[in-house]
Simulated scan of single mutants.
Amino acid sequence: MAFVIRQRLKELGLEQRHLATAAQVTESYISQLLGRKKAPPAPDRTDLYEKLGQALKLPNGELARLADLERKEEFKRKLGNPPAPLFEEVRELILRKCHPDREKQVRAIFAQNPFGELERLVTEKLLHVVKVVAKKELEDENWLRLVARLSSRSYEEMRVMILEFLDADVFTLSAENCMSFMEPLIESWDIDLATFGMDIILNHR
């Protein structure tokens, strides 16, 4: 994907800053994508490819298709490596949000089987719910500009933050992701350890 984008930039006489403006992200974000320092985000979680494709005058869906292929190759590579455990800060935040009646039991399971099935299940469920909210916020330009101003960030920087969070998974979830999105959006969660059904309560903004 990066090769195709660079070729089109050259053919059209454009620079990375033009793409950043078109996609409403930072130039640094575009630079990392083209330098393969950042994996391309999942096509179904972002509006990035549509904006870039229009700027580069590429067929509709072409960049998303290339990104999907690249992500599948990366996924195959990851399968050969054992999963790394969550950051300690991430685990602690998740446990802190757990219902008080269940926290001690869940904490013991997490400790006994680090990054085991239960920990991954809980993290994936929480991540999914918060991503649904974050994706809606990505489409709310007024809200994004307000939050950007309150956090002393640019509108483009806020878009990049949400795009990166939407592309995170249980293997790449960072402490920053948690503090920026999961911490304020999740009030509490509980799980039935017999059926593994989860109740997740969100904070009302």
Rank of each mutant, 00 (worst) to 15 (best):
K125L: 00
L173D: 08
G35Y: 00
R71C: 11
L93A: 04
V4W: 06
L193P: 13
S154P: 08
S152D: 13
Q112W: 06
L166W: 03
L14R: 08
V170T: 15
Q54P: 07
D140M: 12
I162L: 05
E73R: 14
K76P: 07
F165Y: 15
D192M: 06
E11V: 10
A39W: 00
R159D: 01
H204T: 13
G116L: 03
V130K: 09
T46N: 04
F181C: 07
K104P: 13
D68I: 07
I200C: 03
E74D: 03
L34H: 04
E103M: 15
R102K: 14
T123K: 04
M179Y: 12
R145F: 08
R71A: 04
V4H: 07
A168T: 11
E119G: 05
E88C: 01
R65A: 14
V170R: 04
Y49Q: 10
E70W: 06
A22R: 04
P100W: 05
L127Q: 05
E176V: 10
R45P: 00
K51G: 06
R120N: 06
V170E: 15
M1H: 06
M161V: 08
D199R: 12
L86Y: 01
S31Q: 05
L163A: 11
I191F: 01
V133Y: 09
I162P: 04
V130R: 10
V25I: 08
F115V: 06
Y49D: 05
A2P: 02
P40H: 01
A64N: 09
N81H: 13
M179T: 07
V130G: 03
